[in-house]
Design a protein around this nucleic acid. Structure first.
Length: 138
DNA sequence: GCCAACGTTGGC
DNA sequence: GCCAACGTTGGC
């Protein structure tokens, strides 16, 4: 079965791609949105995801991989929420900006555009291919 | 179970 | 810094 693709959003002031690369792996916790939680729950070990900088940069800056599947979020006392662990794989040669995504009609189905507040979302295979290619062009 | 009020996110 | 969109909470 083919891997699923995802997009994870983070504010660089909270957790940036630089930190992600330095630390290599991190616990993706603190997500308090049920829709995002549902998607995290569907992540499988080995799934790949884009890492997006919101607010500052507003661009996809690299690729991460899921290394640990859904487990209870250590930062959540209520026990309602979960987390996953992810690992930095590769930075994009050319970050793919939100403006560019918006300017590309083939990418208009991306939930990033249609639901800007969602912080974890699935990415369709075709969209993954297009953005991945854009990111790796010099 | 509905809905108003409130808080938060994120693009501009 | 503003504002629109949306999710969550709590009263009924």
């Amino acid at each position: 079965m083919k891997n699923n693709y995802w997009l994870l959003k983070s504010e660089p002031s909270t957790w940036s791609w630089d930190q992600m690369q330095q630390k290599k792996t991190t616990c993706w916790d603190g997500v308090r949105n049920f829709q995002a939680q549902k998607f995290m729950n569907q992540m499988k070990k080995g799934d790949l995801g884009f890492f997006y900088h919101s607010n500052i940069g507003k661009e996809i800056v690299g690729v991460i991989k899921v290394i640990r599947e859904f487990y209870p979020d250590p930062t959540d006392e209520t026990g309602r929420f979960g987390a996953v662990d992810v690992e930095a794989i590769t930075p994009f040669k050319t970050p793919v900006s939100l403006a560019r995504i918006k300017a590309t009609p083939a990418l208009h189905n991306l939930l990033l555009i249609r639901q800007s507040r969602l912080s974890v979302m699935p990415v369709e295979n075709e969209i993954w291919e297009i953005i991945y290619k854009m990111g790796n062009e010099a």
